[in-house]
Write a protein that binds this DNA or RNA. Structure first.
Lengths: 159, 159
DNA sequence: CGATCTTTTGAGACTGCATCTCAACAAGAT
DNA sequence: ATCTTGTTGAGATGCAGTCTCAAAAGATCG
């Protein structure tokens, strides 16, 4: 766990901002940094309650936003109706492959795409603060299970 | 207006699917194809009501999804809490620069990025059906108005 | 054209995620 | 220990989107 470093930074940022170090904040920090990947606010809330912590929904949402504001977490809207949060590791911004079959989310990093993005911004005089890139489709396994991916025709569900 | 061609296609698709050609569907089609850019469902509903059409929220949502299923429109989740819809022009998939200052959305196309994405999918054995790429930041004008973009520090709003 | 069958619509209830409210609480300063 | 002020919790509220079901309107056929 090299989270200690991040935690120090968190405490420091709180002090700089004149904000308080509360049990809830530390617990939330621990929870999100113990997660290996992405998690949404409701899951986080449930996980914390499951391990006996008393914390309210409002506090979870508030402090997730706080972590984001501190640059310690990232908030992304993926498919469907939810934000996903993930703790920031080493400042590397990455992008996502989202499988519509199993819901799995795989990260990837592409310096080439990043470079092209920078170029596009330059061309438009646009000052980027961040970006989100998701490639939606089927992962290896799911693609094999549904080989004949017919046109979503007929009177079947409107996805 | 080269929408006539698209409209024929829409009518044809409806028949193929055994679905009905209703006044509401045609009206919605006209509305979204008369829009030059992106629009969300609520705006669309409001716009249609404003011009005296009687149509319900449920119908708007249902038929937007239908247009998407027909490949005539695209649905994207951008920032904040809304889906944006846009009619598909010439099948060109494009990406978006989203200005947090004025809310403007500018489209761009980058074959280079598309190629890199394809490569990434290949490397992961991922079968992509689509993607969304947004670059969030400040457009030319807004960037000049807020030159000293300080760190979002202090006790100001948690964005 | 009118009867019939089936899809579609509309109004409003409902859902789920997220935010807001405000009194009670607790962290940090003195 | 006390005081000040940021923070919390419970529930209300907001909002986008979905669902329900009876009524209305396409399509089909005689």
């Amino acid at each position: 766990m090299s989270d200690a470093r991040e935690k120090q930074r968190f405490l420091q940022l709180l002090r700089e901002r004149g904000q308080r170090v509360t049990g809830e904040r530390l617990a939330l920090f621990d929870e999100i940094f113990s997660q290996h990947g992405h998690i949404d606010a409701e899951e986080l809330l449930a996980a914390m309650k499951a391990r006996g912590l008393k914390i309210s929904r409002a506090t979870v949402y508030r402090n997730l936003d706080l972590l984001v504001a501190c640059g310690l977490a990232r908030k992304q809207r993926l498919e469907r109706n939810r934000f996903l949060y993930e703790h920031v590791h080493s400042g590397q911004q990455h992008d996502h492959l989202v499988c519509t079959g199993c819901g799995r989310v795989v990260e990837f990093i592409s310096p080439g795409i990043a470079a092209l993005q920078a170029e596009i911004c330059r061309a438009h005089g646009f000052v980027a603060t961040r970006h989100t890139l998701q490639i939606i489709g089927l992962c290896n396994q799911c693609a094999q299970q549904q080989p004949a991916k017919a046109v979503p025709g007929g009177r079947t569900a409107h996805v």
